[in-house]
Amino acid sequence: MSEVDSLVNKIMSQLKDENSSASSSTSTSTPTNSDSELGRNDYPLFEKHPDKVKSPTGKSLHDITLDNVVDGTVGPKDLRITPDTLRMQGQIAASAGRVAIQKNFQRAAELTQIPDDRLLQLYNALRPYRSSKQELLDMSSELRDKYNAPVCANWFAEAAENYEKNKKLKGDN
């Protein structure tokens, strides 16, 4: 891709990004990282910006060492991606013209806050004929109110609406 193409793509995707964040209600997941948007030249983060990447417990990549795992200083909770890192990867994807991937990472950033078991339950509840409309709407509220996940809350509300029209709710089979 030429320099010009990549610049145009970057601007286009930033515009789109602004539009989409404006329409998706107020984002509660404000980046703690107030630096300017990252682009494809900031990639891979592991080599270019290891300092920007933190574990959920605030440890840096350099703290994730064999010695620290062996003595228990670093545990499973530290070996997780954070919303900020997903946001940075989303910016990189968008700068390469892949806005849909950025949206996926926006949803993912919200889901980092949800415990594994609950996340699996939420996925299973979205499968066909599993949930009533009200159950899906309740989960939408839970996502919005309990987990600060407005984009995913909207995803569940949208599913509730569409499952009703297209007969995928509990009892429709």
């Binding site: 990639y43 891979p44 983060l45 592991f46 290891p50 990447v53 574990s55 990549l61 994730i64 530290d78 070996l79 997780r80 991606i81 954070t82 890192t85 997903l86 940075m88 990867q89 990189i92 994807a93 390469a96 892949r98 991937i101 990472f105």
Partner: peptide
Amino acid sequence: AQQKVCGDYLQT
């Protein structure tokens, strides 16, 4: 495990 924290390999 470290790469999963960093997310570079989530890209295309």
